[in-house]
């Protein structure tokens, strides 16, 4: 079934279908999460991905990124460097953006994970997705899912008053300036160099003029 499903779907279609496609490809479900056996190199883990509970049986080595892409077929999240340097794999876990390549899936039992597929769909775009399209915030598009997940979380971080390296006063209300956005987005590399348009897209979503 899995093969038929993939053959009949274009790559973009699979992205668009998002969580629904992944549900069809899910690994056999298990009854609840269990502690791994101390001698086992595979383990059961249950993740809440884009609002759906997904039970998986994984090699302990599986990163969250590989679990999302290879096991759940949510290929919106991209593998760039696989070493936490490029940000293409950025997803939002329990409300915080992280590099999904530098964390093990087994360490996320029960965690709520949002990937780019969970933010919006082509028919119902998240405002950040719409702004990236409007402002041409990409060229090749490979870093874009990570940029968008990161950008959504950055606005929440500013709202929560988390300071950055360029915040002039650590104890003042955090401002949403171009300098702040550039600094806070520095963990997302865009080799096409769409940075200025990315900043414009984020700025628009934040309700400001760049």
């Amino acid at each position: 079934m899995r093969e038929d499903f993939e053959l009949n779907m274009s790559r973009r279609g699979l992205l668009a279908a998002g969580a629904a496609s992944a549900a069809a490809c899910a690994a056999p479900s298990v009854a609840g999460a269990q502690q791994s056996r101390p001698d086992a190199t595979t383990t059961k883990v249950s993740l809440n991905v884009n609002g759906e509970t997904r039970a998986l049986d994984l090699d302990t080595r599986t990163t969250l990124l590989d679990a999302l892409r290879e096991s759940l077929h949510l290929t919106g999240t991209k593998k760039g460097c696989d070493h936490g340097q490029c940000g293409a794999c950025t997803v939002i876990v329990e409300g915080r953006r992280i590099n999904s390549c530098l964390t093990l899936a087994v360490m996320h039992e029960g965690d709520k994970i949002t990937t780019v597929e969970g933010l919006g769909t082509p028919q119902n775009l998240h405002p950040m997705q719409a702004a990236f399209i409007k402002h041409d915030g990409f060229q090749c598009g490979y870093c874009t899912p990570g940029q968008i997940c990161s950008a959504v979380a950055v606005l929440d971080e500013i709202k929560a008053g988390i300071p950055s390296h360029v915040s002039a006063d650590l104890n003042a209300t955090m401002e949403l300036t171009t300098d702040e956005l550039r600094e806070r987005m520095s963990g997302n590399i865009c080799r096409c160099g769409a940075y200025s348009n990315i900043v414009e897209a984020i700025t628009e979503v934040a309700g400001r003029k760049a």
Binding site: G84, R97, N99, H165, N171, R184
Partner: peptide, 27 residues
Amino acid sequence: ADARVRRDYGVLSRALLAGASGQLRNK
């Protein structure tokens, strides 16, 4: 981001914020 650290140990807040990326600091 801890209010006490920002107020009383500013050098520590600043050093942390100068390191890595937002994603890495979250983890």
